[in-house]
Write a protein that binds this DNA or RNA. Structure first.
Length: 104
DNA sequence: GCATTGACTCTAG
DNA sequence: CCTAGAGCCAATG
C-alpha cells in the first residue's frame, strides 16, 4: 500500500486489527510508514470514526490506556466496546496492553 | 506557504 | 499514579 496516502494507510491498518486485540497510535503510525506521526492517527480516527467500518476502539495509547477525546464518542463508549470483546479494563481506563497488543 | 491543531510518546520529578 | 514540557508531523484554513 506504498502508493496510498497516510490517512488511507491508517484506515487500512486499523481495519486489520483483529477482534479482541488492540494497537497503539504509535504502532499504526509505524505501520503507515511515518513512525512519529502518532498524533495524526488519532486525528484521522476522530474524523472517520462514525463514518466507515473502522474498529477505532481497538486503538489506544502506548501505555495501554484509553485516551479518546473525540466529540462523537466518549471514553466510556470505548471502554464498553473493548470490554465487550473481552478486554479487562480497570477503573482508570487502563489495562495490560502486552496481553492484548496486536502485532502486524 | 506559513501557522495552528491535536484520540501521541517519552523523559523527569 | 499524576503533571509538565519538548519533540513530532499530516491535515486545515
Amino acid at each position: 500500500v506504498a502508493n496510498s496516502t497516510f490517512k488511507e494507510q491508517v484506515i487500512l491498518i486499523v481495519k486489520q486489527i483483529p477482534y479482541g486485540k488492540v494497537a497503539s497510535y504509535g504502532q499504526i503510525a509505524l505501520y503507515a510508514q511515518s513512525p512519529r506521526a502518532a498524533r495524526q492517527v488519532g486525528w484521522i480516527l476522530n474524523k472517520y470514526s462514525g463514518a466507515e467500518e473502522i474498529p477505532w476502539w481497538r486503538v489506544v495509547n502506548n501505555s495501554g490506556r484509553i485516551s479518546i477525546k473525540g466529540s462523537h464518542f466518549t471514553q466510556m463508549d470505548q471502554k464498553l466496546r473493548l470490554e465487550n470483546e473481552g478486554v479487562i479494563i480497570d477503573d482508570n481506563l487502563s489495562f495490560d496492553i502486552n496481553q492484548y497488543r496486536w502485532h502486524k
